[in-house]
Design a binder for these strands. Structure first.
Lengths: 218, 218
DNA sequence: GCACAAGTGGAGGAAACCCACCACTTCCGT
DNA sequence: ACGGAAGTGGTGGGTTTCCTCCACTTGTGC
């Protein structure tokens, strides 16, 4: 259990650590968050024990592997907020996040999962997620203000959309890797302001958060 | 490997078989298609070996457990076709199938999976599925003819919808068991005929079928 | 009731996976 | 160039899950 404040790693160890992270990124992207450790170790050309030494549990490896991608996720929200057209920003962001999911099975899993705050390794991950979520709230508000997004759209509808998209990707990846696009376009059209039909109430945010925490741990 | 044409089971064995099927239905509904065999055996108050003897592989147990439900699935399509209003029939069917998914995690898994035709035990299952699909084609045609369903709706959009719904259910079951309803209503509104925006092309049916076969075997 | 086929479940093998130990190797400050 | 700290991976223990053997029990036809 090594925290960053400890003495820096020896150069060979640092090299191995980087190789593990790179291997994990590829392995997670291809097979999702539950790849066996020995698969990652093999790709990194490293003993399984070394992986366990550097990353005592799966969560810390996930945190290391997805730091960058999670940052890109948060950045995408900030950029969408800066888009000249509110509706384009909204749609572009949704498409972009879904595309990130479809390009990386591990990331798709990650977005429908929250880690227990107990683990310090994943704090940064959750921080990025929250940053992105705050920008997302603004994206939604702006698109409604522009009169393009239906007023009864709820920001948490994105969370459910991501869960749905993860389901489509899990089933079609490999065979029909673009199937999700059509599904997302249907939803975007349904989100447009020219809808007045009523909808069932969204689930309380509390329960959605709990659902994210409860979902099948990798 | 006992086929139905063999001599009938002894009465105690038949009783055990029924107990196993009943236990499997409950266990699958609660935990999905991957419940360990010993969990089912325990619920049926039967040895694990007995489960394996009666159902040599998971598929045959699944086939036995979901025969009725799959028939209900096919019947729902026939009933929707008989509904007085084409659009009500369409929407009602989609809602009903999704509700079946949400009430039974195993069934949700089942609908996004196809078994290799090799296994005779599951032939009936696939037969029901195909019957339902043929009626579904008619439901779609009728709703389009009534001018209520958008012309570029593709019947296979339902398959993707079911995959998406499975994703929502997998993530929210337990905490927000009705979250899927809002997602489905969004989609139904997008399916309505008053949409002219273009959509990405649906994936070729071939690839979707292969995707169903490839998906994470339970 | 009796004999025997049919049925049963406990015990244990095999595979996949996670993880810890520890004898050996490699780096790095002096 | 050397000694000790840091790092390494093979080996093996533990767990979970699937599945098979086999000695024992229980229906059922006579």
């Amino acid at each position: 259990m090594r925290t960053p404040s400890d003495r820096p790693l020896r150069t060979d160890a640092a090299r191995n650590r980087a190789a593990i992270v790179a291997a994990a990124q590829r392995a997670f992207a291809e097979h999702g968050l539950r790849v066996p450790f020995d698969e990652i170790a093999r790709r990194a050309e490293v003993g399984e024990a070394t992986v366990h030494r550097r990353f005592p549990d799966r969560e810390s490896l996930i945190a290391a592997a997805f730091g960058d991608k999670m940052r890109a996720y948060a950045d995408a929200a900030a950029e969408a907020l800066a888009a000249p057209d509110a509706w384009q920003g909204f749609c572009g962001y949704v498409r972009r996040v879904c595309a990130m999911q479809s390009g990386d099975r591990g990331f798709a899993d990650l977005l429908t999962i929250t880690f227990a705050a107990a683990n310090p390794a994943v704090e940064d991950l959750e921080h990025q997620r929250n940053t992105g979520y705050r920008d997302w709230l603004k994206i939604v508000r702006r698109a409604k203000a522009a009169g393009r997004l239906r007023p009864d759209f709820h920001p948490d509808d994105l969370v459910v959309l991501l869960m749905a998209n993860a389901g489509v990707i899990a089933a079609t990846a490999g065979e029909a890797p673009d199937a999700w696009r059509r599904h997302v376009e249907y939803l975007l059209q349904a989100f447009a302001a020219d809808h007045t039909e009523t909808l069932p109430a969204p689930p309380p945010r509390e329960t959605l958060v709990r659902a994210l925490q409860r979902t099948q741990r990798p």
